[in-house]
Simulated assay, not measured.
Amino acid sequence: MKCYRPISAVKDDFIIIHTNGVHSVGLDFCGCELAEQTSQQLLRVHWFPASSDKPRTAASFAVLKQFHLLSFESKVSTYEFYNALMRMLDQVGKLECKV
């Protein structure tokens, strides 16, 4: 459905952590009277919000599953996993490898 009262998220600088890297995207939440909370709207598109109140960052369910598997199988730490995702980006914030 199309929202006729969109609310911009964080000045169009929302951070998404996904399996192919960390991305800054423009995002609008539904601002209608009957709209769900912003965190619930993110969960509906399979993005887990970093905070429940005014989220500015979210991780995709796919990257959470990937981290879950790697942390059990290879004992990778959260820090190492995040750094590996960041290395997928070059110095100007674009993907080096095509996925």
Rank of each mutant, 00 (worst) to 15 (best):
M1H: 02
M1Q: 10
K2P: 03
C3G: 02
C3P: 08
C3K: 06
Y4H: 10
Y4K: 12
R5S: 03
R5T: 07
I7T: 08
S8H: 01
S8T: 12
A9G: 04
V10H: 06
V10S: 11
D12F: 14
D12W: 15
D13M: 05
D13C: 12
D13T: 13
F14R: 02
F14P: 02
I15E: 07
I17V: 15
I17N: 01
I17T: 10
I17R: 01
H18V: 12
H18A: 14
H18Y: 13
T19I: 09
T19Q: 14
G21A: 07
V22Y: 07
G26K: 15
D28P: 04
D28E: 15
F29W: 14
F29E: 05
F29T: 05
F29M: 10
F29L: 09
G31L: 12
G31A: 11
C32V: 02
E33I: 06
L34T: 11
A35P: 03
A35E: 08
A35F: 09
E36R: 11
T38M: 09
S39C: 14
S39A: 15
Q41H: 12
Q41D: 04
L42S: 13
L43K: 13
V45D: 12
V45Y: 10
H46F: 14
W47P: 03
W47R: 05
F48K: 07
A50S: 13
S51Y: 11
D53V: 09
R56D: 06
R56H: 07
T57L: 14
A59N: 03
A59L: 09
S60M: 01
S60Y: 10
F61D: 05
F61G: 05
F61E: 04
A62E: 07
V63G: 02
L64H: 02
K65P: 00
Q66K: 08
F67H: 00
F67N: 00
F67V: 01
H68R: 06
L69V: 01
S71P: 00
F72D: 00
F72Y: 03
E73A: 05
E73V: 00
E73M: 03
S74C: 04
K75Y: 11
K75T: 08
V76D: 05
V76G: 02
T78M: 08
T78C: 08
T78R: 04
F81K: 01
F81Y: 14
F81E: 03
Y82P: 00
N83W: 07
R87T: 02
L89A: 06
Q91R: 07
Q91V: 02
V92Q: 12
V92M: 11
V92Y: 13
G93Y: 08
K94G: 00
E96V: 15
C97T: 15
K98Q: 13
V99Q: 03
